[in-house]
Amino acid sequence: MKKRWYDYLWIVSLTYLILGFFNILFAWLGLLCFFIPLIISAAAGTKGYCNRYCGRGQLFSLLGGRFGLSRKKDIPRWMKSKWFRYGFLIFFFVMFFQMLWNTYLVFSEARGLRQAVTLLWTFQLPWHWAYHGTLLHPGVAQFAFGFYSVMLTSTVLGLVTMVLFKPRSWCVYCPMGTMTQLICKVRNGKP
């Protein structure tokens, strides 16, 4: 099958993850992965982002498929249940708002900047080498640390389920995927 330009977006996703090791402020670019799928689903009523442009999905596809880093077993039934998918979406939202709250605290100068990346919402990883100061408020950097934590955590979860189950197992419970499907359902009604 002929490859299109958007079949190479995995390079962008990989570059994004690598850039975060050098300068955390690049984490802001990750907002594109939040807004583009939402805009496509709300405006066009499709999951065009998942279907074509998701670089992260392509990365899992490549690593798990061509590189063979996946057992290619069925995902457990509970993991594809609506309960788990919507539950994970809500949990993800709560954690996201907590991250926004932490950013607000730094903006309001109630708390100082924490130069750490939180993996799996629990483990604080030192990340000071990727911060070289900012011309803007330290809150801008705090958001970057928080957002990169979200992106890294979801990549790690995706990699684990890629190895255990099928390459793109992450797509089953990806909060953005669940949310865009929900938007399509509300917008389009029954298929």
């Binding site: 099958m1 689903s41 009523g45 499709t46 999951k47 065009g48 998942c50 279907n51 074509r52 999905g57 596809s61 594809k80 998918r85 793109r168 797509c171 089953v172 995927g177 669940t178 865009t180 499907q181 938007i183 399509c184 359902k185 389009n188 029954k190 298929p191």
Partner: peptide, 25 residues
């Protein structure tokens, strides 16, 4: 169809373009 997440992985691998994602659902 009730359990489909509409990710589109199937569409990509189908050699006959026999699958489509309906309305993102």
């Amino acid at each position: 169809q009730n359990d489909c997440v509409a990710c589109g992985c199937c569409v990509k691998v189908c050699p006959f373009s026999a699958i489509q994602i309906l309305k993102g659902i």
